[in-house]
Design a binder for these strands. Sequence first.
DNA 1: GGCCTAATGTGAACGCCGTTCACACGATGG
DNA 2: CCATCGTGTGAACGGCGTTCACATTAGGCC
Lengths: 215, 215
Amino acid sequence: MARSGYFHGDLRRALLDAGLDAARAGGPEAVSLRELARTVGVAPSAVYRHFASHEQLIGAIARRSLAMVADAMEDELARVPAGDATAWADGAIAAVGLGYVRFAWREPGLFRLAFRAHGDLEAAHDEAARGASGRTPYEQLERAFDALEAVGELPREQRPGAEALAWSAVHGFATLTVEGPLRSLDERTREALSWRIVEMVRLGLSATAPEPGAA
Amino acid sequence: MARSGYFHGDLRRALLDAGLDAARAGGPEAVSLRELARTVGVAPSAVYRHFASHEQLIGAIARRSLAMVADAMEDELARVPAGDATAWADGAIAAVGLGYVRFAWREPGLFRLAFRAHGDLEAAHDEAARGASGRTPYEQLERAFDALEAVGELPREQRPGAEALAWSAVHGFATLTVEGPLRSLDERTREALSWRIVEMVRLGLSATAPEPGAA
DNA sequence: GGCCTAATGTGAACGCCGTTCACACGATGG
DNA sequence: CCATCGTGTGAACGGCGTTCACATTAGGCC
């Protein structure tokens, strides 16, 4: 384990750290296996002792990024005033949404990488995607909706799928502003729109919806 | 111009067609410049007579895909019953949203490629992104909101940014179900959720929202 | 303490990729 | 008929992910 010059010590961890740095700076496309090996000072083939493929390397970095998303949501949740349960539930759903999009803006490279893991399914629900709070981003969302339902602000028939709807709105906004056609928005309007997004979600989910009409 | 065996005839068009096929089958990562040249029966370097780089090739294919998105939205709009203006406006906003997500499900490869064009900015607003109706996807959305506003169902102060919010919700849902953590949803729940998405957008935008509270 | 084994890192090679450049071809217009 | 210019060729470059035989070392076992 002592630095012998031949063995690295903790190559796996070092590769992930280097990968996070690279993705932070240049997004997913900047994370090349050979480049990471170079940064860490090791032959490219050595990487395969710890990851089966480039795709799995990316997947592992994606999980770490997701954990950071969960932490960002947790931080935002932590500053919701505790007092009233109803007020807290309202604040919580705003907090998780804002934490999500703000992470995307603060770390666009990591955010883009986090949702680029096609190979190993469901990285978002993986153990390694848990942050310091022990929760995945999705579970943070669930927590906020649990509170909302407990307080009677979320109709029972809206609950299944409610997370999916909220996640869609927030994720779409984050995506379009980070790497999509809305990426040229200035920070003020972005911030204002993100508030309206969570408001839209809350309003849209607090009522009973009719059945589909035609087609 | 006659097929001489040396000159191709319309290489640019042929490359785009081949690119659409490749993306349809394997998504953005399946569209390699060399592979396309091979399919068309031409040397890789010949591609550079028509596109400055691989990225611009992808960009051109992305624009064609966006045009197809606009067409899908147009098709869905066309089957909204015309009668009442209010009913039409309601139907229109549902139609554009559903057209969008249904295109994503029908052509996941093209959809994924369409929103991967980082290089040349604003492909979504480009001329080449117009479909048979002469409109971009974004303009289709605008059209539906114009109708909604004309009928008095969209408060004036909600209008600026309304397209961004609606687009976010719909795009996020499409993304998460096509290449994200929600991609394992079965078709029935997907379809049901997409209805609820547009309902959420309509409800969420039909009311006046309060100012942001704290932080 | 000295060996065996399993884990870990090396180096060279393979085929793919995007890109460049000097060159070949052929349609077109003076 | 010839010069020109747009279009396609072929070979080469460096970078990529991946593989495989081989080198090196840590740690357990006698």
